[in-house]
Amino acid sequence: MDFLRPAGWSEALEAKANHPDATPIAGGTDVMVELNFDHRRPETLLDLTRIEQLREWSRTERNGVPTVRIGAAVPYARLIEELGTTLPGLAMAARTVGSPQIRNRGTLGGNLASASPAGDGHPPLLASNAEIELESVRGSRTLPLADFFTGVKRTDMAPDELIAAVHVPEGTGPQQFSKIGTRNAMVIAVCTFAVALHPRRRGVGTGLGSAAPTPRSATEAEEFLAGALAEDGQWDDPRPLPASVTERFGELVARAAAPIDDVRGTAGYRTHALHVLARRTLSWAWDEYRSGTELSGRQRCA
């Protein structure tokens, strides 16, 4: 096995162009497991740990929207510590990933590249309308995250491309994330759900994980809720949400799922749980919105 260790980004892109079959490795929390279990025997590993810029994040603006650009090799632990107030949904998801050791090593870019239907980082990014920046020696392109996932562990990446960064619009309202697992920590998701309220554009974002071949949004649920909130003048004068609204939102989220039966749970349970999670997370997010803070750094979780 060849082990390539580019010192900088352009060198890494060159290496990937010359070795399109190379498996990129950063934290190694997915790749090493696959190697250890002998599920994969790549001819070449492309080590990204020396590329400083991949470990940086910055505030930018995209299309007039304040946005955080997160380098692909930023680990979960730093998402929690450094971006907990700016991107609360993503930070909440990061808290549910593995153990402290895994959160120190594992990276957001790795989570996206693995493209597991159960990737914990994906739903909050979908709920925030994040985009992914891919680059190769041929140039750079940015596409909506929803277009990035093409199937179970499959993405739109070309063989010579690497993930440079993720662009996440800063939250303008409350965000929530919940994950079902049959253990109270360190568990692969049975299913996950993320919701983000976007009061500035009067929109709602959602993301479902472990509920379909790819992470996806519950578009119908988003549209229903945004419509109901607008219709009742709730954005400007927030009042308790009628049970009929939260219930319908839950139903539509559950309907957006196309889950399977597997060793971690049944399709029926996943659908049921998504309904409950959608209802609960919406009510937490809405309570927070009603309590008056447009963008709140407060979170209920530890």
Partner: peptide, 8 residues
């Protein structure tokens, strides 16, 4: 649910 934030 613990750290997974499934209930308050």
């Amino acid at each position: 649910g613990g750290a997974s934030n499934t209930t308050h």
